[in-house]
Write a protein that binds this DNA or RNA. Structure first.
Length: 422
DNA sequence: TCTGGGGTCCTAGGACCC
DNA sequence: TCTGGGGTCCTAGGACCC
């Protein structure tokens, strides 16, 4: 059996943990640069301001009207709360897998035998324990495959009667839950696939589960075919595949303000190179191919401008200085006078594992692994960007707009909550 | 005053080469 | 006189996830 534990409205509820004054009020959290709403608590949903990924400025007045608390994304806080949540989760099962910042899969192995108290009771125990230790509300979904565990967790939160825990352990329950789920509620089925499925007469999750996998493969792809198998209770997703090193790594961000000069564009792009390269070394990979891109805003009143250029490395590398030099040359191609750049980014593609990569004896290897190891070690200890390539710019001026930022309650000494006793 | 997220994987189609 | 194949690389953008 598999379990999925996921935090309800994670960022919004994380804001409540160390700030008792705002409990009970609607809370919404904004994305980078305070652009869109990305997380909401139950009170915000109840107040009718719970829609995600709408631009903040469009709903600002609605939020004021219901006296909502608005917060910028406090990643320092969320990352630490996520770590605490994952720590607690890892005690519940022999194997756990961190799927995203607020979701943890637990693998109870091939045995279908329930714990002595039964799956439902165990699910409630896990939920209670996370609340007790981390003060975050979660949903628990349990089922024979990851996709069904995900469906159960959907039911735990959205279908009345489950109260936070749902277990798919019989065909009867499987049918009942899937019949009440839209196609887009199924993991791996988005808006477009759902529309195509509906044209073929498949209207909900249960009907998808009943499809012939071979037919689905012909109409769509092996990925959708796997989803159908998983909905039937036949396991196709494997954590080894999920855990496999990434094939592409990106770092991209929109600017707090539009950028129009080449020097700033270069600094921003080199900053992304630094972030992507550090992720690359984290997974012990080398990159053979880099893509750098920049664009203006599709919302600006100007013709859409978007350019991307690639560079192929003579020899696979993970060295920030070599990646930066190549990216710096591509900036000249991306830059164009008069364009109000809104977003830039860097992708590292064609990744290979460092330990199996056979170096080419005819190419001079300019990598400086000792320097990179040293850089990673210093940044790991003293915080990201303690040491960086000078091309990123010493002012570090691309800070995000975070107007409504809460404190770093758990990671900065001066921000520790204080309880005063009389 | 002005404001619209970030990441990964995959593929269509054009350009170019032999 | 007119016609014709197959592979690789690159850019753009779709689709999905949170």
């Amino acid at each position: 059996m598999q379990a999925l534990l996921d935090i309800n409205g994670f960022y919004a509820n994380a804001e409540l943990v160390f700030d008792p004054k705002i409990r009970g009020r609607p809370v919404v959290v904004l994305t980078n640069n305070d652009g869109c709403i990305c997380a909401v608590n139950q009170a915000a949903k109840d107040a009718g301001v719970g829609k995600k990924f709408v631009p903040y400025f469009q709903v600002k007045e609605d939020l004021q009207r219901v006296n909502a608390v608005v917060r910028s994304s406090n990643y320092e806080l969320y990352a630490d709360m996520s770590r605490r949540f994952m720590d607690t989760c890892s005690r519940f099962a022999p194997n756990s897998h961190i799927y995203s910042i607020d979701e943890c899969f637990l693998d109870f192995g091939s045995s279908h035998s329930a714990p002595p108290e039964g799956w439902d009771a165990y699910g409630r125990y896990m939920r209670r324990t996370v609340w007790k230790e981390v003060r975050l509300p979660i949903g628990v979904g349990i089922g024979p495959t990851p996709t069904l565990a995900k469906a159960a967790s959907h039911a735990a939160k959205r279908i009345e009667g489950f109260n936070g825990v749902a277990v798919i352990d019989s065909d009867h329950v499987r049918r009942s839950i899937l019949s009440q789920m839209e196609l887009t509620d199924v993991w791996g089925i988005g808006r477009r696939l759902a529309a195509r499925l509906e044209l073929l007469g498949v209207k909900n999750a249960w009907q998808l589960a009943e499809c012939d996998p071979g037919w689905i493969r012909k109409q769509f792809s092996v990925l959708v075919e796997s989803t159908v198998y998983e909905l039937k209770g036949i396991k196709k997703l494997d954590w080894d595949e999920v855990r496999a090193p990434k094939k592409e790594i990106y770092s991209t961000r929109s600017f707090g303000q539009r950028v129009m000069d080449k020097a700033s564009l270069r600094q921003a792009i080199l900053t992304h190179v630094g972030i992507a390269a550090s992720k690359l070394r984290d997974q012990n990979s080398l990159s053979g191919h880099m893509v750098v891109f920049g664009a203006n805003s599709p919302h600006d009143n100007a013709p859409y401008y978007s350019r991307s250029f690639t560079h192929k490395f003579p020899s696979y590398t993970s060295d920030t200085t070599l990646l930066s030099a190549a990216a710096s040359r591509l900036v000249d191609q991306i830059y164009s006078r008069g364009i109000r750049f809104y977003k830039v980014g860097v992708g590292l593609l064609d990744l290979v594992r460092e330990d199996t990569y056979q170096r080419d004896m005819f190419t001079i290897n300019k990598d400086k692994p000792e320097l990179m190891a040293c850089l990673d070690k210093i940044n790991g200890r003293y915080g990201r960007n303690s040491v960086f390539v000078a091309g990123q710019g010493v002012e570090q001026k691309f800070s995000m707009r975070r107007e409504f930022l809460s404190k770093q309650y758990t990671t900065r000494l001066s921000d520790l909550p204080v309880i005063k006793c009389k």
